[in-house]
Design a protein around this nucleic acid. Structure first.
Lengths: 348, 348
DNA sequence: CTGAAAGCGCTTACAG
DNA sequence: CTGAAAGCGCTTACAG
């Protein structure tokens, strides 16, 4: 093995030393059909065999010797497709895809954080130019499978632990939250609550931290009772808000982790007979289109969602064409959009 | 040649063309190596031979056959990706695709009604199982190209003239509009206006016709001044509504062709200092999620958008697997959802 | 789960 | 300039 390994690696400075399925098979001590099955993600290969073959494939930088090695496709994977949020990101990716004459294959994971079992196999058999995972992560094994297929990965608002080597795109969540909270403080609010999302998600964590930083800097203590964690949807946020409003000393302002939650605040306020912004100020996050038409129009932090999509797609195209990504992590700026859901607190 | 030609076409009930170098060679009366040389632009082919081979290649849309004959893909083409409307349809298509282990390739046309020049070529080279066109149409030539590639087409809310043979899916637009208008009539409204979309689109036309039918049946004349045609977005509808409200005898109720327009009505009412439903009743169409959280929650006609997506995808799968579609046109039912944007007209 | 054998589509090397 | 034959790399169908 040392001898053949040496021979193979000597030649591969530039010329992709014609590593064929047969070569890999020989080196891994299996037959060509087995290697073929591993490459195409077909079932029916023992896990240990698959691992061994993958290792050899990866080590020798196997490239399909056929033509048609790569399909002009971008894989776009979404945690869920449940808000305009997703639509704007898709538009961004579509824009780059159109320019580059690439097709976009869209997959939703129905709220799961990791693609299902069959997904990687499908992707490998499609041989796309690359994968963009939005608000979702791949398992280590799935990442390894993509790597063996030489399929690059870019994440957008990754969920779990930041992946060591995976380039990612996001927005300036921390500073957006900071500016939003300062806005409420400047209006004179002191009892400010926050509706958080799941804190294992870095973007949720960053928004909470930005909120806390602004409060600390202003010397206003954060009342732990006013910080609630819940799902990023309208209904749950409405329930949390209702609970907050029943407190002996309810908040005069709330900062929500996204616009959907902020809508839940609207709903709870309406049901409690409170008026926004007179009785309660609210700031959202995202600036989805309908925030402009809410009653009253919502003050929110704008995230350049479409541009996040184009950025991720452009990074992917660059990586796929052999360029090293300029940065591992790109954060696009956020802006506070002041509309009519925030005002000075009612003087008591 | 007649004999071989017949043999080829007889067998292809299920298996599609699979035009290989060998096929082209046979049809052009040359050998496979010669075709190979033409394809790869190699020298050493007589000009006349080259021309002949090129003609056959082009005529049969030759694609490199190394890859599989048909890719497990559904092409989903959208007129535009600008509303939750699109997202729900995508979810439906995704659901069927997931079950069938198909990928979904999403294309947007940026508001154009017909895919651009390069689109058909890309689709042909992807060899998908079929195409779903939403709120958009293909040119006759594009349809012919798909037909040559044996790629079936299903339309969802088709735009131009209903295509002779193209199966399509839609909602019960006429009866939905009828029921919505009756609801307003039953509340006591007589000066009812309607915001229309472009009437060359069958679904817009059907909603206007349903409105008229309900008015006629109730013996209430339609005032032509109260029927406005405009884009299906918030802003335009707000302008139209503002104009209607400035009329000497303004409407007491409006029926909008979609929820986005109805939101425009909300906006115009707010700016005119009118309250919904006290001063003006509004009914939308679609029942997008945010209508529930509007201020006040919107009365609207529910379209089963997700189910429209699954229905279109299921039709496509059936057709692709060789079944004749049970019906050419499927219309799913619509339901009036009464919330709080409609009330009796103010007595004067 | 695995491989020997057959097969596929394309290309190359050679003979005429 | 052209084709029969051999070859290449990968995949499929089958047997164990």
């Amino acid at each position: 093995m040392t001898a053949t390994g040496a021979t193979a690696s000597v030649g591969d400075g530039r010329r992709r030393g014609k590593v064929t399925v047969a070569t890999i098979a020989r080196l891994a001590g299996v037959s060509a059909p087995t290697v073929s099955r591993v490459i195409n993600g077909q079932a029916g290969v023992a896990l240990s065999t698959r691992r061994r073959v993958e290792a050899v494939l990866h080590e020798h930088g196997y490239q399909r010797g056929d033509a048609a090695a790569q399909a002009p496709l971008i894989e776009l994977v979404f945690h869920a497709l449940d808000s305009l949020w997703a639509l704007e990101i898709i538009q961004g990716v579509e824009e780059v895809a159109r320019d580059q004459k690439l097709g976009v294959v869209l997959t939703t994971m129905q709220g799961r954080l990791t693609p299902g079992a069959g997904w990687t196999e499908q992707v490998l058999s499609r041989r796309p130019m690359g994968v963009i995972a939005v608000l979702s992560d791949l398992t280590t094994h799935q990442q390894a499978q993509l790597a063996t297929g030489s399929i690059p990965l870019v994440t957008l608002d990754p969920t779990g632990e930041p992946l060591h080597d995976t380039p990612s795109v996001g927005a300036a969540n921390y500073s957006g939250a900071l500016v939003a909270t300062r806005h409420l403080l400047e209006l004179g609010h002191r009892r400010i609550g926050m509706l958080c999302g799941n804190l294992k998600w870095p973007f949720c964590r960053a928004r909470l931290d930005g909120f806390r930083a602004a409060m600390d800097q202003a010397g206003v203590p954060v009342d732990p009772d006013l910080v609630r964690v819940g799902p990023l949807y309208v209904e749950g946020a409405a329930r949390e808000t209702a609970a907050l409003l029943r407190l002996p000393e309810p908040p005069t302002a709330l900062f929500a982790t996204n616009d959907l939650q902020a809508h839940g605040v609207y709903e709870a306020a309406r049901e409690a007979g409170l008026r926004i912004p007179d009785d309660l100020s609210v700031v959202g996050f995202d600036d989805l289109p309908f925030t402009r038409w809410a009653g009253p129009p919502m003050t929110t932090v704008r995230q350049p969602l479409k541009r996040m999509g184009t950025t991720a797609a452009a990074m992917l195209v660059a990586i796929a064409s052999g360029q090293a990504p300029r940065e591992r992590r790109v954060e696009l700026t956020t802006d506070l959009i002041v509309r009519q859901s925030t005002a000075r607190p009612r003087t008591r």
